[in-house]
Amino acid sequence: MSLLNFGGQFGNPDVSPAYFLVALAACLGTLQLIAARYGYVGLAWVSPRWQPWLGGLLGVALVTLPWAWFFERHSAGIFRPGPAGLELMVMFGAAALASVPLTLLGATLIQSGAAPRSLPRRDGVIAELVTLPQGPAWLFRPAQAGGPFGAVCAVGTPGAGSEAVIPLATALAEAGLVALAVGWNQEDAWRPSEAEALQAATSAAAFLRARADVDALRLGAVGVGLGGDVALQAAAADLGIRAVVAVAPWLDLANAAPGLSLLRDMTFPQAWRWQHTLRQTARQLDPLAHARRLDLRPVLLVAPEDSGPSEGARRRLTALCRRLTTWRVPRLGRETQATRQIALWLTENL
């Protein structure tokens, strides 16, 4: 039977319920496509950091397959007078509204605890769970014997867990560095203050320095999102940190009420709990006020074209750090090439 069997005389002529289901599936698919394209963790049913293509494929399937079913089963009703245009709009609106909580719920259920289960397996990299005073963290190290290796403390946005920095930490270990992916996703540490966030970064640095396979004189820090601000500020306070990478840091309060942007870092329940103290922590964390202390140490600012710090904040950082390098990347979340380049930059500057 043809997929587009328009001449078929079977099926329920009243297509409204079927149309609602098709519109709902199409809305869910569109949101999956958006999640895959823009790296929204809080909307994605397949983590955009691990398999962006799979999320896109799921989106395309959800948009197209229900239409094939609709035409196959309801061709008789489709080509008869049906609901008026306004009724269709209302039905579509209802489907769109229903698709949003379903998407958020699905993303939360599917992605809760996904990071430990789906750690990327790479040849030549050993991943192990270690315990810091602030909670568990993932350590990635080169599998080959030898050393001591340079080491990097990788910090994600407080409240978002370590998932955002795990691909980066893996790439760093592949490049021959020991990397510690620090997150704050424990129930008792949902909303770390500036002091707690910096303390966690300091603990991570101390942990790395104490390891036998780490060259304590080759220590760096990298942070993603608000974690970039933490990394900059921790490096300003700790002269032993020789190089810093800040990926899409906030730098000022222009980005401190990001709404939907938070769903790029975390699931909806995490974001909901975190947003209330977000401004406060962002205000307390003021890396620009401390950036002068970075002075001649190499600093890499990775600024995605569609997010990241404001132009003014970037200029201020440029004025304060004499060895600042700025990279513009198209967007955050799927830039495996940028991840490798960051690893290479750190290897060269530690």
């Binding site: 519109a23 394209r37 948009v63 269709l88 709009m89 939907l260 569609d306």
Partner: peptide
């Protein structure tokens, strides 16, 4: 038909609402 093109355009609006990560 009354369904495909209007729905495709409406889906574009849904996508537009969520697209982009720059505020």
């Amino acid at each position: 038909n009354d369904y495909v093109a209007p729905t495709a355009l409406s889906l574009a609006l849904l996508g537009l609402w969520f697209s982009g990560s720059e505020v």
